[in-house]
Amino acid sequence: MGFKLLSKLLVYLTASIMAIASPLAFSVDSSGEYPTVSEIPVGEVRLYQIADGVWSHIATQSFDGAVYPSNGLIVRDGDELLLIDTAWGAKNTAALLAEIEKQIGLPVTRAVSTHFHDDRVGGVDVLRAAGVATYASPSTRRLAEVEGNEIPTHSLEGLSSSGDAVRFGPVELFYPGAAHSTDNLIVYVPSASVLYGGCAIYELSRTSAGNVADADLAEWPTSIERIQQHYPEAQFVIPGHGLPGGLDLLKHTTNVVKAHTNRSVVE
């Protein structure tokens, strides 16, 4: 069995187990497998329904001669939608809004960016022009300005110390501490036991640490421990890039980060 097929099978099995364990909360999309990078042309966006009122959005972007996937989250909030992270750029984010209108038909009224990198804030200006209120932590807003990236308009308070959590509509926002970046936030959907790890969490097929220019490698494993301790009931975990899975993604990420750190020390 090929690795790609095995990865998709694991996603399907995880979703099936969740649907059985929580039949009222989960209505997993039966329309197909989780979209992969090879299936999404740059400039297009796919939506994948995880649970009743919960979707991931998947886009792709060219970077350094390669094409990478990027995940975000959409959560229903009454007759409105909360968006977590842009679709990595203005063109993708405009396509995301169009796809949401086509498939869901509810307005996106608020959006949260989970850290300051372009795959999370690139497209904020498109959201703002569409009347979406954009939010991020003060740290993310400051770092985005320093980096020359787009800056969300509103500040999220109460997320300055490791372990801080605040309720934001249908989700809980959690600051686990520094990891992929010093400002990275985690998003949890309690009604569906869905954990969105953003770039602080890796997919299972990833074996290298990737972009760690703004990471705190020493603190990252401790931050992941905080996530595990705060959300032990999480059933569906979405990484910032690639295929979702279960809580095993947290341990896998820790292993990859520690291996990278150990290699760096040896070198």
Score class of each variant (00 low, 15 high):
Val265Cys: 05
Gln235Phe: 07
Val124Gln: 04
Pro152Glu: 00
Thr60Met: 14
Pro152Arg: 00
Tyr68Trp: 05
His115Trp: 00
Thr182Gly: 10
Gly72Leu: 01
Cys199Ile: 02
Ala209Thr: 09
Arg46Gly: 09
Asp125Val: 06
Ser31Leu: 10
Ile58Asp: 02
His115Gly: 00
Pro221Cys: 05
Lys8Arg: 10
Ser22Lys: 12
Leu250Phe: 08
Gly245Pro: 01
Asp29Ser: 10
Pro69Gly: 15
Gly210Ile: 05
Gly240Thr: 00
Ala111Asp: 03
His241Tyr: 06
Phe63Pro: 06
Asn149Ala: 13
Cys199Gly: 02
Ser62Gln: 08
Glu101Ala: 14
Val256Ser: 03
Ser205Thr: 10
Asp248Ala: 11
Gly78Gln: 09
Gly245His: 02
Glu225Lys: 12
Arg142Tyr: 12
Thr93Ser: 04
Asp248Phe: 08
Glu219Gly: 07
Asn211Cys: 04
Leu81Arg: 03
Phe168His: 01
Leu13Thr: 15
Ser38Asn: 08
Val171Met: 04
Asp52Gly: 10
Leu143Cys: 04
Gly53Pro: 06
Ser56Phe: 08
Gly43Asn: 10
His260Ala: 14
Gly78Trp: 07
Tyr175Gly: 00
Asp118Thr: 09
Ile74Phe: 06
Asp183Val: 03
Glu39Phe: 10
Val67Ile: 09
Val257Gln: 02
His115Arg: 03
Gly123Ser: 04
Asn255Tyr: 12
Asn71Arg: 02
Ser16Arg: 10
Glu157Pro: 11
Leu24Gln: 12
Asp64Ala: 13
Ser62Asp: 10
His260Asn: 10
Pro244Lys: 02
Ser139Met: 14
Arg142Met: 13
Val166Thr: 09
Glu267Gln: 12
Val45Leu: 05
Ala130Gly: 09
Leu249Asn: 03
Val146Leu: 14
Gly89Leu: 04
Asp216Asn: 12
Val194Asn: 02
Gly163Lys: 05
Val146Pro: 06
Thr222Gln: 14
Gly53Asp: 15
Pro69Asn: 15
Asp79Gln: 10
Glu44Pro: 07
Ala218Glu: 13
Val112Leu: 10
Trp88Asn: 00
Ser22Cys: 10
His154Gly: 07
Ala94Gln: 14
Lys8Ser: 12
Tyr231Gly: 00
Phe116Ser: 06
Ser7Phe: 12
Asn71Phe: 01
Leu243Gln: 15
Ala209Gln: 09
Ala215Cys: 05
Met1Ile: 06
Ser38Trp: 12
Ser27Phe: 10
Ala215Gly: 09
Val132Lys: 03
Gly177Met: 02
Leu82Ser: 03
Gln229Ile: 11
Ala218Thr: 12
Asp119Ala: 06
Asp52Leu: 10
Ala129Gln: 13
Gly242Thr: 05
Gly122Cys: 07
Val42Asp: 15
Asp77Pro: 00
Phe26Cys: 11
Glu33Tyr: 09
Val256Glu: 02
Phe168Pro: 02
Ala215Asp: 06
Pro107His: 10
Val126Leu: 09
Ala165Gly: 11
His57Pro: 02
Pro244Asn: 01
Asp52Lys: 10
Gly198Trp: 04
Leu217Ser: 03
Leu6Ala: 14
Asn211Gly: 10
Ser223Leu: 01
Val67Gly: 12
Ala234Ile: 08
Phe236Met: 10
Arg206Ile: 10
Val146Gln: 14
Leu185Arg: 02
Ala25Arg: 14
Leu204Cys: 06
Pro35Tyr: 08
Glu99Gln: 14
Thr93Pro: 01
Val266Trp: 13
Val112Arg: 04
Arg110Asp: 02
Gly72Gln: 01
Ala66Trp: 07
Ile224Lys: 02
Pro244Thr: 04
Ala215Ile: 04
Gln229Thr: 12
Val166Cys: 04
Arg76Lys: 08
Ala51Phe: 07
Phe168Lys: 02
Ser160Asp: 14
Val112Asn: 02
Trp55Gly: 01
Ile186Lys: 01
Asp125Cys: 02
Ile100Gln: 04
Val42Gly: 14
Ile201Tyr: 04
Phe236Val: 11
Thr36Phe: 11
Asn255Gln: 12
